[in-house]
Design a protein around this nucleic acid. Structure first.
Lengths: 231, 231
DNA sequence: GTCAAAAACTGGCAAGACCAATATTTTATA
DNA sequence: TATAAAATATTGGTCTTGCCAGTTTTTGAC
């Protein structure tokens, strides 16, 4: 039964994504040198070994070039991203549609298996999400944990895995650049509000209401996502 | 252990190559667990952080899978493009439940977008499936094509991809070999019959009926699957 | 002003420690 | 005796500290 990962993704992946985000956000210029390992580690709040692991990931997919004794440099080539494979013709609309299908089924199963403990767990995640928002940070990880916790409670490992994969798709390099521009504290507050509605429905073990709230949440997320697109 | 070494390549790359070499040499079996990080580091004469960096490189290119608290595993399949992680706790019941959720949503979308041409395509697949059965062969490929053709007609690439992945069931290679033993011409005829019912529903553009037939088909498939299991 | 030595970076690697998740063994219980 | 629960051992995850080896920048003679 058990086997899914309630835990967060590996730290080096999160750090790599953060750095990709900084790059996409234009924090660093092409071909330019990034801050030193020690400085970056301090700035991102992780240790140097973890930062190094993230840099290796970035080096492998060609985002960054590391010169010993000199520094970390952004690769200047305009074209990369060949290894992202399958998600080429997949649009945000399709992704959120797929999430609605999967998570809509998941939450029905979960609402029937909700326990006091799993509710406490969700409560804790939502509180943490609120804290992050108050602190001006982006509660991406809490968002992920919320959806994964519900998926785990469905008791179906296959569905739980799909939920995680589809969530991470949203954070693929293609979409991260979009996120950086539109994710404001306001939009995150709205997302939290919708999460609360889902939580309330689960608390009342109302599977139909929970499914409706989940659909509404994903629909709103999609809208917020699309509205922020420049084109 | 080793000290001064003129800067050739980075250590993690050398270590990763060493491990690849050991794998090629048949030192480790496919799907099997490798020695622990500490042991491998000792064996290769490097520190654990360096060994970990090498493992991250191997994990990224898909030759190895790392499970926290459990160990390092060789990826079993010879060809695995998506970086999805195989999980062990996934049962046939859960798999078919997930397929019902995804394909149930898919067929609703597809029934609204069915064209004369796509119907002809489905018809052709079903006829080919019947021929295979008559010839005493197992129409597993036609079965796959049928489900994938419907998924493609949904117009959602993400969902289509999920349908393919769940059908291929690359996450539990154990189940595929089970299938080979119980799939008789009789059970395949039943599957074809259910496919025909789905086709009829799509032909009539009855999305509700189509969804019901798809659910019934997957439910029956699951039953046939489980009934054949030895235990 | 030129140029070379030295000092201050920067990345590369190692060792040890502790935590968290998992697997295994042992123990208790029915 | 069989099964479930708890204690233990194992394994990956991460951090801290320290030192080494190349680069770059500064410095100070000439």
């Amino acid at each position: 039964m058990n086997g899914f990962r309630t835990t967060e993704r590996r730290l080096y992946q999160q750090v790599a994504d953060q750095i990709r985000g900084l790059i996409q956000a234009g924090q660093f210029k092409l071909g330019q040198r990034l801050p030193s390992e020690r400085e970056l580690a301090l700035q991102l709040g992780v240790s140097r070994p973890s930062l190094r692991e993230a840099l290796i990931a970035l080096e492998i997919d060609g985002t960054v070039e590391i010169r010993m004794g000199s520094g970390i440099y952004l690769v200047a080539t305009t074209e990369r991203r060949p290894p992202t494979s399958a998600s080429m013709g997949e649009s945000p609309v399709e992704l959120m549609q797929a999430r609605a299908a999967v998570e809509g089924a998941v939450i029905v199963l979960a609402s029937a298996r909700m326990t006091a403990e799993s509710l406490r767990n969700l409560r804790q995640i939502l509180d943490g999400m609120a804290s992050e928002i108050s602190a001006g940070r982006k509660p991406v990880e809490h968002d992920r944990q919320f959806h994964l916790a519900i998926a785990a409670q469905s008791g179906n490992d296959v569905l739980a895995r799909l939920v995680g994969e589809l969530f991470d798709d949203r954070h693929s390099p293609l979409s991260t650049q979009l996120r950086e521009h539109f994710e404001t504290p306001d939009t995150w507050s709205l997302a939290l509000c919708e999460h609360e509605l889902i939580y309330t429905a689960l608390e009342g073990r109302d599977s139909l209401l929970a499914q409706a709230m989940m659909h509404a949440h994903l629909e709103e997320s999609k809208r917020r996502w699309l509205d922020s697109e420049p084109r």
